[in-house]
Amino acid sequence: MFGLPRKLVVDSAELQRRFYALAREHHPDFHQAAPAEERARIEATSALVNAAYRTLRDPIARVEYLVRLEEGRETKEGDIDKPKAPPALLQEMFEIQEALAEARSEAAKGALDETTRATLAEQRESLRARLKDEETRLAGPLSARWDSAAPAERPAILAAFKEALATRAYLRTVSADLTETLGGDTEAFGRAIEGRHGSAEAPRTRGGMGGHIGAPHQ
């Protein structure tokens, strides 16, 4: 759509320039006089251009999108080969979650004692640092490796992507849980850093409607 090569490392200034050009071409503002049907079509195109730019400008979203493309999935869900985080990480996250649950029941009785608080805060800082490292690795060296890889090497890199994405999802979820228990700096950081969106454990069932069978990407 943007006329750029299908690479993970993208020239963001060029991407933005092309996005502005496409946005101009397809924005409903410039097609007010068109018949209703035509306007609806332009609005849909405009929505598509916006969604594409949103995905492509973010290096992590680019990787997620690539994994889906490579697996021939249109949807975010429904992959047979579930992404797995390293078992060591799972074990560690499980332990933190347990400590958290304990801290919460303690907090429910009274105030959280200072030692527990300090330990949890320390853990959060460490998780945040690892999250940042993981994201840098995904967007940087791993993405660059994909771009220069021979077709035979790609499945291995794809697996690395999936593991890194899963690791990131766990780090984000647990880090957000810590923030929730600790309270505090949510205002400054908010969900921009530790969003509940994009969590690997997103709820998949819904009330009154039966299950939903997957959410296709736009």
Partner: peptide, 25 residues
């Protein structure tokens, strides 16, 4: 969705127009 939890389709600060699709049964 189930349990009174909100399942976000379109996050805040998304450029508009925008669209999102979901499948239900």
């Amino acid at each position: 969705s189930l349990g009174g939890i909100v399942n976000v389709l379109i996050p805040r600060n998304t450029t508009i127009p925008t669209s999102a699709r979901e499948m239900f049964t």
